[in-house]
Design a protein around this nucleic acid. Sequence first.
DNA 1: GGATAGATTTTCT
DNA 2: GAAAATCTATCCG
Length: 198
Amino acid sequence: MLQKDFYARFDTRSLARELLGCVLVHETPEGTTSGIIVETEAYLCDDPACHAFNRRTTRTEVMYGEPGLAYVYQIYGMYFCFNVVSAPAGTGEAVLIRALEPLEGIALMRERRSAGANTARTFKTKELCNGPGKLVQAMGIHKSQTFHDLVKPPLYINEKVSGEVEVVVSKRIGIAEGKGHELLYRYFIKGNVNVSRP
DNA sequence: GGATAGATTTTCT
DNA sequence: GAAAATCTATCCG
């Protein structure tokens, strides 16, 4: 399991890159789900797209906390996004986890995703976690886990299983022009089929 | 296969 | 009252 020093060691963009290949794990009463992190985005304090850009508020308070905390927020009324708080306490930065490659508990992920769908349908394995809102649903992560310290169960991250990975850098997804649209703060594993947008 | 509209609620102005 | 770090169903080719 990754410890505090890992989250504190890197600046936000380096952490976003380092998290690729690591394994996000969530232990719940229904079972354990886990997946390899294959896509991330960095949000810096001097970045208009960052929630903590304007000022320190109730919602963004956790982003100013110590690195390694979880930040879960609701987006577009019905979905949630999971972030890892980065940068020293007092600096409002975080890494958005955008996609996972399902590892453990795939049946449970399918169950949770189907329960969230309007009509009965079967999800392919690569459709379970290939987007920020999707992985939160599949992993059973809840908004109340904001402020959870990711160095202990039930929600934590394991170190890379298989050596270094080939990383591709790109513009972020869903950022409007004039809001840091052109910044190359998105990182994903080359050729991985679970990435939200190749 | 790709494009598009609609769902729905918290947060801040 | 508007905007938001999205996803799915449904249309069309």
